[in-house]
């Protein structure tokens, strides 16, 4: 049995070749169904036909086709294997009303499908748009970081299948060290934009699936400063409490008036 220390993924986007072995391995290990019964669906805009993470696609290799200029000079074709970030402060877990979403002994975030009732609050709460309903069992689903494999000290299917070691799995501390060294190497080679996303605590307390990027997070479809949904809780409740108090006074004034009128009338008669 592995020691229960935080584990996760470090994804080095600079070595991803877009082969989608991770997508296939994930589907196969987790027995995820093909969408639309396996009928061929081409996006028509890219080699990326998966298009987004969903209840049946827990890995998605993004193809970032950056050809802004007319002559395509400086064009870039970047790939990034996207997945649940297993946030240390996870929005999905924060709002889940059934207790279906739990934090495991490895500090990962897992949805228990026998508890989930499909309220979909987690979908709107995740700042990365990771979760969706799996139509096969009508509950919210996402990457489990292969919890079943982790328990047996096995590497998650995607990391195992990745031929370029773009997806690396292990104890988070070790992964961070490795990632920092890689950033230093890239910067020394002149790739000054090399940076880590989610490796420290500044993003949601840290992402247990963090990335090495060579551009701003937005270029990869990642939010620059994702936050927890509860940031709005106190203010929302404070405003409704103020509103309730105001409406209470208005109700009191409106519906009490008659008595006041009567007192006033009695006063006039006297």
């Amino acid at each position: 049995m592995p020691a229960a220390v935080p584990h996760g993924f470090y994804t080095d986007t600079t070595v991803c070749i877009g082969c989608k072995a991770c997508e296939v391995a994930c589907k196969q290990w987790n027995q995820l169904p093909a969408s639309k019964g396996g009928a061929p669906q081409l996006s028509g805009q890219s080699y990326d036909n998966t298009l987004r993470l969903s209840g049946t696609d827990w890995r998605h290799v993004k193809f970032i086709e950056d050809f802004k200029t007319e002559d395509r000079s400086g064009g870039r074709w970047m790939m990034m294997s996207d997945v649940c970030k297993h946030c240390v402060k996870a929005g999905c877990l924060e709002v889940c009303p059934t207790g279906a979403i739990i934090r495991t002994e490895f500090d990962t975030v897992v949805i228990q499908s026998d508890v989930c009732n499909g309220c979909r609050a987690c979908i709107a709460a995740c700042p990365f748009g990771v979760i969706d309903i799996n139509p096969a069992n009508s509950v919210a689903m996402k990457c489990t970081l292969c919890y079943d494999r982790m328990k047996l000290d096995m590497t998650p299917a995607c990391a195992q299948a990745c031929p370029t070691a773009s997806i690396q799995y292990g104890p988070i501390d070790e992964l961070r060290d490795r990632a920092q060294k890689r950033v230093a190497t890239l910067q020394a080679q002149g790739e000054t934009r090399a940076q880590l996303y989610g490796a420290d605590t500044s993003i949601l307390g840290g992402l247990n699936s963090f990335y090495l990027l060579v551009d701003k997070p937005e270029v990869y479809g990642l939010p620059a400063n994702p936050e927890l949904p509860s940031r709005n809780l106190a203010a929302s409740n404070a405003f409704s409490a103020i509103g309730a108090a105001v409406m209470g006074v208005i109700g009191l004034v409106s519906f009490r008036k008659r008595r006041m009128d009567r007192f006033a009338q009695q006063g006039n008669n006297e």
Partner: peptide
């Protein structure tokens, strides 16, 4: 129900705290 919408990460809903009131 207004707080339910604001306490998410969705555009517009999460960008105001006044939906509950």
């Amino acid at each position: 129900t207004g707080a339910l919408l604001s306490v998410t990460n969705r555009p517009i809903w999460a960008n105001t705290n006044l939906l509950s009131v």
